[in-house]
Design a protein around this nucleic acid. Structure first.
Lengths: 196, 196, 196, 196
DNA sequence: TATGAATGAGGATTCATTCAT
DNA sequence: GATGAATGAATCCTCATTCAT
């Protein structure tokens, strides 16, 4: 058992070294050599813990996304309206605390489209599903409470697309606050329409 | 003058060879060697017409985007409502005719986020501006005609973000028609709200 | 004493794990890691019983060759003619029972010529000597019995060369039986000549 | 045309650098780096002329085997008896002039059995066929001349196996002359039997 | 005695770009 | 202007062996 925790911890520790490197040099600048140096271990050691380079980045992505969702699932219940709960999912990513998360994810979306690569697409699909679940849960609840129209779930895909679109474009914008306001009003308007 | 036309034509011809290669092997599979072979010219010749590899892909991107906008600017005036004009900008990309355009742009978005790279970000900014202009032109006109509310232009960013988001996610979806319907209803709802 | 038997048994047990791995993946596919896993021991433990990787393979080679010679020495006395006794040495290797022996030895001959390597050449010399002894013993006896010519021992080298040659080439042949028949007739002809 | 000759010459030149390296360090010691250094060219240049490392060694093998067969086909017609013609095929390899040829071929046989490797096995099969043809041609002629028995061709496989066997074992022998004599007498005895 | 985490030298291959012709 | 031979830095990954526990 101690063994397993150890292995798991080492994986995390390597993945975190990986994170700081991606933030510095970008994902395309990440090499096994640089990672080994950053993590203060031998190159071979990395391969004791990961199958290959992609595996490391995927581990990092999973860790970060879990952290993000944990935060979202912690904050959402504190909000009263369905609008605010959904805003938590989308807007939390624009907070100072998740600035690194955003940068890393930008790069991940990049590779997944640049390299025809199964593993990263799988991660993306998983990302989509987990976010879908979050939205589905709260929207369903609001439907049961007769707050919003019965067919409201069909807008989940639309919400997620908007989430992704703002995310992507936010990197070429100087003023994030405008994006945030825009998202805010998008959600407000959407639910204005969905409310019974 | 003849010289310039010649140079320009050669650039285009090379860029088109590049396009078919990207469609076959992906942008990450594109090499100068394969491009020279596809274009039936020497590797050195490519560097007579382009600064570097990135420059070629950028040329292709510009050509394709111009083609797309030309089509959009041709079709939009035939539509009566502001909604339909805007739908032209977004939904034309889902037509059979632009299937290659979509694939190439997916790859371009990929590199631009994967490689920390100025040139591709510039293209993206330009893409944003040109699309912004299109929307601004028609929305402004509708405002003048008192069809929609005065402050409607603030939703342009929202529309473009949604455009990009659907575009990105469409590649991991099996049923494009659902995306198209979703976009359609998104635009309808938005303008339901904007109409005076 | 118990210690020594133990050590000896462990060596054998490891060598046998090695055998099944070579049969599966080839000698070039054999790694200390895979061997440790197959033998259900730690990598370090292997080095408690063997000097190095080569040492393990050598142990296996010796075990297998001993097994083979034991069989040959058991079967040969049951044969009446000198020809048949010699055929036992060569043709037993083509029997179902020794199919693994042949595969392993093919690989061993491979390394010994591919890697300029003392240890494997030593094994090969030992192999030669042991087979030589076998042939010498029976041929000498036949000479004493005046069955064959006095100088017949000079053909031992020829017999062993033929043995090796057929062995080597048999791996690129589909029909082993043809090789067997060919060897059979080779021996018959040789002794036709040697008989007084 | 000049181009092609040039490419061909460069291939040969690289293959010859490869030869001297194999003679020095063995085939297992051959690296692309060392080859580039030996040939005084860049590592990348090697890949302009060869698909991969194996391809280089194969080119060398083909060149050497062609040289060997050329010599054999030149010398054989000068011999009168069928025995002597066949001895040319086998014994020429033991001459001073072909000492390098033997060393290289030893290594090639090594890899082909050590690495489960298609390309080298193909070469070996080709080697077998070409030698088979040589023997077939002369033995057939002798049959027509009624010098030897009609079914003599069935011994070709036997002769080639013996050739290979002596070849293999000759590397662990100090006295090559004994091998040569042994082969000589093997051929003599064989044809004593085959002569009508 | 047994272990297995850590190592790092080493090796094949790729490819954008240059430059002499 | 056109070429394509030459380049070599750069990268991922393997694996026998060691050694602290």
């Amino acid at each position: 058992m101690a063994q397993k925790i150890c292995k798991h911890q080492k994986r995390e520790s390597i993945a975190f070294s990986c994170k700081s490197l991606i933030l510095q040099e970008g994902l395309s600048g990440l090499t096994i050599s640089s990672l080994a140096k950053e993590a203060n271990i031998g190159k071979g050691t990395i391969y004791e813990y990961f199958e290959n380079k992609e595996d490391i980045v995927l581990e990092l992505a999973n860790i970060l996304h879990k952290e993000y969702l944990d935060e979202v699932y912690k904050l959402a219940p504190k909000k009263n309206s369905i609008e605010d709960k959904i805003k938590v999912l989308i807007l939390t990513s624009y907070e100072e605390k998740f600035i690194e998360y955003r940068k890393i994810f930008k790069e991940l979306i990049g590779v997944s489209y640049y390299k025809t690569n199964c593993a990263f697409m799988l991660f993306q699909n998983q990302w989509y599903k987990q976010n879908y679940q979050f939205l589905y849960k709260y929207i369903q609840k609001a439907i049961k409470n007769k707050e919003i129209k019965e067919n409201s779930t069909i807008f989940i895909d639309s919400i997620l697309s908007t989430f992704v679109g703002y995310f992507i474009l936010s990197f070429s914008k100087s003023d994030l606050q405008k994006s945030i306001n825009s998202i805010d009003s998008y959600i407000n308007n959407l639910f204005l329409m969905l409310r019974v």
